[in-house]
Amino acid sequence: MDINSDLGESYGAWRMGDDAAMLSIVTSANVACGFHAGDPAGILRTLRAAARQGVVVGAHVAYPDLVGFGRRNMDPTSEELVADVIYQIGALQGLAAAAGTRVAYVKPHGALYNTIAHDARQGDDVIAALLAVDPALTLLALAGSPLIARARERGLTVVAEAFADRAYNQDGTLVSRRLPGAVLHDAEQVAERMLHWAQTGEITAITGERIRLQADSICVHGDSPGAVQMAQRIRARLDAAGIALAPFAAP
């Protein structure tokens, strides 16, 4: 099992999360590329820290939405979206090389992530961008999403993920952040929830129904309050249960 987190999201004087602490816990790091968060110097610091810790790095690509932290829906043309994703991957590849590591996978962020899970046109644009840059890049995507099959049909390796700190709808989609209960905060409850899912493949939706999620990675959002404690508790529970932790992509 892999544990991933969204990192490199600080911007100038504004601090977002605790990258150093998270990198001592997670096995994969989704590093911002400057479109929704992150400045070049801060991104480079995070990449260097990831390299020191042996954490595998992925490009956390997004809509160009600094003000909205990449969480506002957008409708770019295919030409724009393909180019935006290529640009972000390329920027992170350059910084990663300077930091002594490499970009092994791509995880879209925020509104882009949720849109491409079910929007075929934008999903195909992101797939096209990965294929244009490096077909060996792995795509990290929402468990149960139609995007997974489409990407695999185009030849990409795809890994599905489950979210530790987000509530699920009955259909396996994430509850909108605009709704009460969408983001989970109790570290002990979240850790127990993830252990139960890892052992049974089932998670409880916000409506109370049990749903099945097939995934090989757990995401803990680095910007969530108490993210470090949450990640620590999840890792401790999985370790205690004998569930081996390893990155899904080769370093």
Rank of each mutant, 00 (worst) to 15 (best):
V67Q: 13
F69S: 11
F69R: 12
R71H: 09
N73D: 15
M74G: 05
M74F: 06
M74Y: 03
D75P: 00
T77N: 06
L81A: 01
L81M: 01
D84G: 07
V85T: 08
Y87F: 15
A91D: 08
L92P: 03
Q93G: 14
Q93I: 07
Q93T: 10
G94L: 08
G94W: 11
L95H: 12
L95W: 14
A96P: 09
A97W: 12
R102N: 09
A104T: 06
Y105W: 09
K107T: 06
K107Y: 05
P108R: 00
A111N: 02
A111D: 01
Y113S: 00
N114R: 01
T115P: 00
T115S: 09
I116G: 01
A117E: 00
A117M: 01
A117H: 00
A120M: 02
A120E: 14
A120D: 09
R121Y: 01
R121K: 10
G123H: 04
G123C: 02
D125Q: 04
V126T: 01
V126W: 01
A129V: 02
L130V: 05
L130M: 12
T138W: 07
T138V: 15
L140F: 15
L140W: 10
L140D: 04
S145W: 02
P146D: 03
R150K: 05
A151I: 07
A151S: 08
A151C: 08
R152K: 14
E153M: 12
G155V: 01
T157K: 14
T157S: 14
V158S: 09
V158I: 06
V158G: 09
E161V: 08
E161A: 11
E161L: 08
A162L: 11
D165R: 02
Y168P: 05
N169V: 03
D171H: 05
T173Y: 00
T173H: 02
L174M: 01
L174R: 02
V175A: 11
S176C: 04
S176R: 13
P180N: 13
P180C: 14
G181E: 14
A182K: 11
V183T: 10
L184M: 09
L184R: 10
H185L: 15
H185Y: 15
A187K: 08
A191F: 03
E192K: 13
E192H: 14
E192D: 15
R193A: 06
R193E: 05
M194N: 05
H196I: 00
H196E: 10
W197R: 08
W197C: 08
W197S: 09
A198C: 11
Q199T: 07
E202D: 13
E202H: 14
E202N: 13
T204V: 15
T204I: 14
T204R: 15
A205K: 07
A205P: 10
A205V: 07
I206R: 12
T207V: 04
E209L: 08
